[in-house]
Protein backbone atom coordinates (compact mmCIF):
# COMPACT_ATOMS: atom_id res chain seq x y z
CA UNK A 1 0.00 0.00 0.00
CA UNK A 2 2.55 2.53 1.15
CA UNK A 3 6.30 2.31 1.14
CA UNK A 4 8.39 5.07 2.68
CA UNK A 5 12.16 5.07 2.08
CA UNK A 6 14.78 7.22 3.81
CA UNK A 7 12.46 10.16 4.25
CA UNK A 8 14.19 13.27 5.60
CA UNK A 9 12.93 16.75 6.31
CA UNK A 10 15.09 19.50 7.72
CA UNK A 11 13.77 22.80 9.02
CA UNK A 12 16.01 25.81 9.41
CA UNK A 13 15.25 27.71 12.55
CA UNK A 14 16.71 31.09 13.45
CA UNK A 15 17.60 31.58 17.06
CA UNK A 16 16.11 35.05 17.09
CA UNK A 17 14.46 37.39 14.62
CA UNK A 18 17.79 39.14 14.00
CA UNK A 19 20.05 36.12 13.93
CA UNK A 20 22.11 35.68 10.79
CA UNK A 21 22.94 32.05 11.26
CA UNK A 22 20.29 29.42 11.69
CA UNK A 23 20.21 25.97 13.22
CA UNK A 24 19.05 22.97 11.30
CA UNK A 25 16.49 20.77 12.96
CA UNK A 26 16.01 17.30 11.59
CA UNK A 27 12.27 16.77 11.86
CA UNK A 28 12.61 13.52 9.95
CA UNK A 29 15.88 11.63 9.62
CA UNK A 30 15.92 8.69 7.18
CA UNK A 31 12.54 7.32 8.14
CA UNK A 32 11.55 4.10 6.37
CA UNK A 33 8.57 1.81 6.80
CA UNK A 34 6.01 -0.21 4.90
CA UNK A 35 2.27 -0.26 5.30
CA UNK A 36 0.37 -3.28 4.03
CA UNK A 37 -3.11 -3.22 2.58
CA UNK A 38 -5.74 -3.06 5.32
CA UNK A 39 -3.17 -2.69 8.07
CA UNK A 40 -3.05 -0.12 10.87
CA UNK A 41 0.38 1.26 11.64
CA UNK A 42 0.74 3.03 14.96
CA UNK A 43 3.30 5.82 15.21
CA UNK A 44 4.30 6.56 18.81
CA UNK A 45 6.36 9.53 19.86
CA UNK A 46 6.32 12.59 22.04
CA UNK A 47 6.14 16.17 20.91
CA UNK A 48 9.09 16.96 18.67
CA UNK A 49 9.53 13.38 17.53
CA UNK A 50 8.57 14.23 13.96
CA UNK A 51 5.41 12.20 13.84
CA UNK A 52 3.23 15.06 12.58
CA UNK A 53 5.83 16.03 9.98
CA UNK A 54 5.66 12.43 8.80
CA UNK A 55 1.89 12.73 8.42
CA UNK A 56 2.21 16.00 6.51
CA UNK A 57 4.81 14.51 4.17
CA UNK A 58 2.66 11.49 3.35
CA UNK A 59 -0.19 13.87 2.48
CA UNK A 60 2.29 16.02 0.52
CA UNK A 61 1.28 19.01 2.59
CA UNK A 62 5.00 19.30 3.14
CA UNK A 63 7.74 18.36 0.66
CA UNK A 64 10.39 16.11 2.16
CA UNK A 65 14.02 17.07 1.43
CA UNK A 66 14.98 13.58 0.37
CA UNK A 67 13.70 10.06 0.22
CA UNK A 68 10.77 8.46 -1.54
CA UNK A 69 7.14 7.72 -0.82
CA UNK A 70 5.48 5.08 -2.98
CA UNK A 71 1.75 4.74 -2.74
CA UNK A 72 0.32 1.67 -4.52
CA UNK A 73 3.60 1.45 -6.40
CA UNK A 74 3.62 5.07 -7.63
CA UNK A 75 6.26 7.54 -6.50
CA UNK A 76 3.98 10.30 -5.26
CA UNK A 77 6.75 12.87 -4.97
CA UNK A 78 6.95 12.92 -8.78
CA UNK A 79 3.22 13.39 -9.33
CA UNK A 80 2.04 16.55 -11.07
CA UNK A 81 -1.22 18.20 -12.06
CA UNK A 82 -4.17 15.85 -12.42
CA UNK A 83 -2.43 12.81 -10.96
CA UNK A 84 -1.38 14.82 -7.96
CA UNK A 85 -4.95 15.90 -7.38
CA UNK A 86 -6.23 12.36 -7.62
CA UNK A 87 -3.86 11.36 -4.83
CA UNK A 88 -5.88 13.59 -2.50
CA UNK A 89 -8.88 11.42 -3.21
CA UNK A 90 -6.99 8.32 -2.15
CA UNK A 91 -5.22 9.59 0.96
CA UNK A 92 -7.07 11.57 3.59
CA UNK A 93 -6.21 12.93 7.02
CA UNK A 94 -7.94 13.57 10.33
CA UNK A 95 -6.20 16.27 12.37
CA UNK A 96 -5.79 16.56 16.11
CA UNK A 97 -7.78 19.68 16.82
CA UNK A 98 -11.34 19.64 15.50
CA UNK A 99 -11.67 23.30 16.50
CA UNK A 100 -9.15 24.55 13.95
CA UNK A 101 -9.51 21.92 11.24
CA UNK A 102 -13.10 22.81 10.31
CA UNK A 103 -13.97 26.07 8.56
CA UNK A 104 -16.10 28.04 11.04
CA UNK A 105 -18.06 29.73 8.27
CA UNK A 106 -19.22 26.55 6.59
CA UNK A 107 -22.12 24.33 7.50
CA UNK A 108 -21.66 20.59 7.91
CA UNK A 109 -23.25 19.87 4.53
CA UNK A 110 -20.81 22.24 2.81
CA UNK A 111 -17.82 20.80 4.67
CA UNK A 112 -18.62 17.24 3.69
CA UNK A 113 -19.87 17.90 0.16
CA UNK A 114 -16.87 20.00 -0.87
CA UNK A 115 -14.49 17.09 -1.47
CA UNK A 116 -17.28 15.07 -3.09
CA UNK A 117 -18.09 17.79 -5.61
CA UNK A 118 -14.44 18.60 -6.08
CA UNK A 119 -13.81 15.10 -7.42
CA UNK A 120 -17.23 14.94 -9.14
CA UNK A 121 -18.11 11.85 -7.17
CA UNK A 122 -21.80 12.70 -7.06
CA UNK A 123 -24.25 14.88 -8.93
CA UNK A 124 -25.27 18.07 -7.20
CA UNK A 125 -28.92 17.08 -7.00
CA UNK A 126 -28.12 13.95 -5.06
CA UNK A 127 -25.53 15.40 -2.72
CA UNK A 128 -27.93 15.58 0.23
CA UNK A 129 -28.51 11.85 0.20
CA UNK A 130 -24.82 11.19 -0.04
CA UNK A 131 -24.01 13.46 2.91
CA UNK A 132 -26.83 11.91 4.95
CA UNK A 133 -25.33 8.49 4.36
CA UNK A 134 -21.87 9.65 5.41
CA UNK A 135 -23.23 11.38 8.51
CA UNK A 136 -25.02 8.18 9.52
CA UNK A 137 -21.81 6.20 9.10
CA UNK A 138 -20.06 8.43 11.66
CA UNK A 139 -22.95 8.17 14.12
CA UNK A 140 -24.62 11.54 13.54
CA UNK A 141 -28.18 12.12 12.32
CA UNK A 142 -29.58 14.38 9.60
CA UNK A 143 -30.21 17.22 12.06
CA UNK A 144 -26.50 18.03 11.97
CA UNK A 145 -26.57 18.78 8.25
CA UNK A 146 -27.12 22.54 8.57
CA UNK A 147 -25.15 23.16 11.75
CA UNK A 148 -22.02 25.24 11.97
CA UNK A 149 -18.92 23.91 13.77
CA UNK A 150 -19.43 26.23 16.76
CA UNK A 151 -22.79 24.59 17.44
CA UNK A 152 -21.15 21.24 18.06
CA UNK A 153 -19.05 19.67 20.81
CA UNK A 154 -15.45 18.55 20.31
CA UNK A 155 -16.45 14.93 19.82
CA UNK A 156 -19.11 15.82 17.27
CA UNK A 157 -16.66 18.03 15.39
CA UNK A 158 -14.16 15.21 15.25
CA UNK A 159 -16.91 13.00 13.80
CA UNK A 160 -17.46 15.63 11.10
CA UNK A 161 -13.70 15.70 10.41
CA UNK A 162 -13.79 11.91 10.00
CA UNK A 163 -16.87 12.19 7.78
CA UNK A 164 -15.06 14.69 5.56
CA UNK A 165 -12.07 12.36 5.30
CA UNK A 166 -14.32 9.44 4.34
CA UNK A 167 -16.27 11.47 1.77
CA UNK A 168 -13.83 10.77 -1.07
CA UNK A 169 -13.75 7.06 -0.25
CA UNK A 170 -9.99 6.98 0.35
CA UNK A 171 -7.96 3.84 0.73
CA UNK A 172 -5.51 5.29 3.25
CA UNK A 173 -6.47 7.32 6.29
CA UNK A 174 -3.86 9.21 8.30
CA UNK A 175 -5.06 10.03 11.81
CA UNK A 176 -2.79 12.55 13.54
CA UNK A 177 -3.53 12.46 17.29
CA UNK A 178 -7.25 12.28 16.55
CA UNK A 179 -8.33 11.86 20.17
CA UNK A 180 -5.76 13.72 22.24
CA UNK A 181 -7.73 16.96 22.49
CA UNK A 182 -10.88 15.14 23.63
CA UNK A 183 -12.15 14.07 27.03
CA UNK A 184 -11.65 10.46 28.08
CA UNK A 185 -15.21 9.29 27.49
CA UNK A 186 -15.31 10.97 24.07
CA UNK A 187 -11.86 9.58 23.19
CA UNK A 188 -13.23 6.08 23.51
CA UNK A 189 -16.19 6.92 21.27
CA UNK A 190 -13.99 8.33 18.52
CA UNK A 191 -11.54 5.41 18.75
CA UNK A 192 -14.26 2.84 18.33
CA UNK A 193 -15.73 4.87 15.47
CA UNK A 194 -12.34 4.93 13.69
CA UNK A 195 -11.99 1.18 14.09
CA UNK A 196 -15.52 0.67 12.80
CA UNK A 197 -15.15 2.83 9.67
CA UNK A 198 -11.77 1.31 8.99
CA UNK A 199 -13.29 -2.17 8.92
CA UNK A 200 -16.37 -1.16 6.95
CA UNK A 201 -14.47 0.82 4.30
CA UNK A 202 -11.51 -1.58 4.21
CA UNK A 203 -9.08 1.25 4.92
CA UNK A 204 -5.43 1.16 5.72
CA UNK A 205 -4.57 3.52 8.52
CA UNK A 206 -1.61 5.35 9.97
CA UNK A 207 -2.47 6.20 13.54
CA UNK A 208 -0.26 8.77 15.21
CA UNK A 209 -0.34 9.30 18.97
CA UNK A 210 1.79 9.97 22.01
CA UNK A 211 -0.41 7.65 24.07
CA UNK A 212 0.95 4.12 24.09
CA UNK A 213 -2.26 2.64 25.46
CA UNK A 214 -4.28 4.04 22.58
CA UNK A 215 -1.76 2.97 19.96
CA UNK A 216 -1.66 -0.52 21.40
CA UNK A 217 -5.41 -0.73 21.13
CA UNK A 218 -5.76 0.26 17.46
CA UNK A 219 -2.54 -0.85 15.74
CA UNK A 220 -1.27 -4.08 14.29
CA UNK A 221 2.24 -2.77 13.81
CA UNK A 222 4.03 0.02 15.65
CA UNK A 223 6.94 2.33 14.99
CA UNK A 224 8.49 4.29 17.86
CA UNK A 225 9.91 7.69 16.96
CA UNK A 226 12.22 10.05 18.82
CA UNK A 227 13.66 13.30 17.47
CA UNK A 228 12.92 12.44 13.87
CA UNK A 229 14.32 8.92 13.99
CA UNK A 230 12.66 5.54 14.11
CA UNK A 231 14.09 3.77 17.16
CA UNK A 232 12.07 0.59 17.01
CA UNK A 233 9.61 -1.08 14.70
CA UNK A 234 7.62 -4.27 15.02
CA UNK A 235 4.35 -6.10 15.46
CA UNK A 236 2.24 -4.81 18.32
CA UNK A 237 2.45 -7.92 20.48
CA UNK A 238 6.15 -8.29 19.78
CA UNK A 239 6.84 -4.69 20.81
CA UNK A 240 4.85 -4.96 24.01
CA UNK A 241 6.09 -8.38 25.11
CA UNK A 242 9.69 -7.84 24.10
CA UNK A 243 10.59 -4.14 23.84
CA UNK A 244 14.26 -3.71 22.91
CA UNK A 245 15.10 -0.01 22.79
CA UNK A 246 15.59 1.73 26.16
CA UNK A 247 13.12 4.40 25.08
CA UNK A 248 10.40 1.89 24.22
CA UNK A 249 11.11 0.07 27.46
CA UNK A 250 10.74 3.32 29.35
CA UNK A 251 7.42 4.11 27.65
CA UNK A 252 6.02 0.66 28.34
CA UNK A 253 7.23 0.53 31.93
CA UNK A 254 5.66 3.92 32.47
CA UNK A 255 2.32 2.91 30.98
CA UNK A 256 2.26 -0.11 33.29
CA UNK A 257 3.14 1.98 36.32
CA UNK A 258 6.42 0.20 36.99
CA UNK A 259 9.28 2.07 38.61
CA UNK A 260 12.22 2.64 36.32
CA UNK A 261 15.28 4.84 36.42
CA UNK A 262 15.04 7.79 34.08
CA UNK A 263 18.20 9.71 33.52
CA UNK A 264 17.83 13.23 32.27
CA UNK A 265 20.99 15.23 31.94
CA UNK A 266 21.68 18.30 29.99
CA UNK A 267 24.78 18.39 27.84
CA UNK A 268 25.82 18.35 24.24
CA UNK A 269 24.26 15.99 21.77
CA UNK A 270 25.75 12.68 20.77
CA UNK A 271 25.24 10.62 17.64
CA UNK A 272 22.45 8.57 19.12
CA UNK A 273 19.41 10.83 19.50
CA UNK A 274 18.38 9.15 22.74
CA UNK A 275 21.82 9.44 24.36
CA UNK A 276 20.96 12.28 26.73
CA UNK A 277 18.07 10.42 28.31
CA UNK A 278 19.42 6.89 28.15
CA UNK A 279 20.25 5.12 31.42
CA UNK A 280 22.23 2.39 29.59
CA UNK A 281 24.37 4.57 27.34
CA UNK A 282 27.87 3.48 26.39
CA UNK A 283 30.83 5.34 24.89
CA UNK A 284 30.09 4.25 21.38
CA UNK A 285 26.71 6.06 21.43
CA UNK A 286 28.56 9.39 21.35
CA UNK A 287 30.55 8.80 18.20
CA UNK A 288 28.45 6.40 16.13
CA UNK A 289 24.87 6.49 15.08
CA UNK A 290 22.98 3.23 15.52
CA UNK A 291 20.94 2.17 12.48
CA UNK A 292 17.71 0.24 12.43
CA UNK A 293 18.40 -3.48 12.06
CA UNK A 294 16.69 -6.80 12.69
CA UNK A 295 14.04 -8.99 11.13
CA UNK A 296 10.90 -7.87 9.33
CA UNK A 297 8.94 -8.59 12.48
CA UNK A 298 11.07 -6.52 14.84
CA UNK A 299 13.74 -3.89 14.23
CA UNK A 300 15.67 -1.70 16.64
CA UNK A 301 18.31 1.05 16.45
CA UNK A 302 20.53 0.46 19.49
CA UNK A 303 24.08 -0.77 20.08
CA UNK A 304 23.05 -2.65 23.20
CA UNK A 305 21.09 -5.04 21.01
CA UNK A 306 24.12 -5.57 18.79
CA UNK A 307 23.40 -2.96 16.14
CA UNK A 308 25.93 -1.31 13.90
Amino acid sequence: MLSVRNLSKIYEVKKSVFAISSTKIKALDSVSFELKDGETLGVVGESGSGKSTLARCILLLERPDSGSIRFKGIDILKLKGKDFKSLRKEVQIVFQDPYSSLNPRKRVIDIISEPILNFSLEQKERIKERVTGILMSVGLDVSFMYKYPHEMSGGQRQRIAIARALATEPSLLVADEPVSSLDVSIQAQILSLLLEVKKKNRLSMIFISHDLNVVRFVSERIIVMFKGKVLEEGGRDEIFSNPLHPYTRMLIAYSKGEPMPVKIESGEGASCVYYQKCPYRIKRCISDQPVLFGTDGHKVACFLEGGN
Binding site: G155, Q156, V184, S185, I186, Q189, N213, F217
Partner: peptide
Protein backbone atom coordinates in the same frame (compact mmCIF):
# COMPACT_ATOMS: atom_id res chain seq x y z
CA UNK B 1 -16.86 1.92 35.08
CA UNK B 2 -17.19 3.74 31.77
CA UNK B 3 -14.20 5.98 32.50
CA UNK B 4 -11.96 3.03 33.36
CA UNK B 5 -13.00 1.19 30.22
CA UNK B 6 -12.58 4.34 28.09
CA UNK B 7 -9.08 4.84 29.45
CA UNK B 8 -8.32 1.20 28.58
CA UNK B 9 -7.43 0.41 32.17
CA UNK B 10 -9.54 -2.64 32.77
CA UNK B 11 -9.03 -5.26 30.10
CA UNK B 12 -8.64 -4.69 26.39
CA UNK B 13 -12.28 -4.07 25.67
CA UNK B 14 -13.31 -0.57 24.73
CA UNK B 15 -16.80 0.25 25.92
CA UNK B 16 -17.34 3.97 25.43
CA UNK B 17 -19.84 5.96 27.47
CA UNK B 18 -22.57 7.11 25.11
CA UNK B 19 -23.46 10.77 24.56
CA UNK B 20 -21.57 13.81 25.79
CA UNK B 21 -21.22 15.78 29.01
Amino acid sequence: QGLLSSALIRGDELKPIKGTV
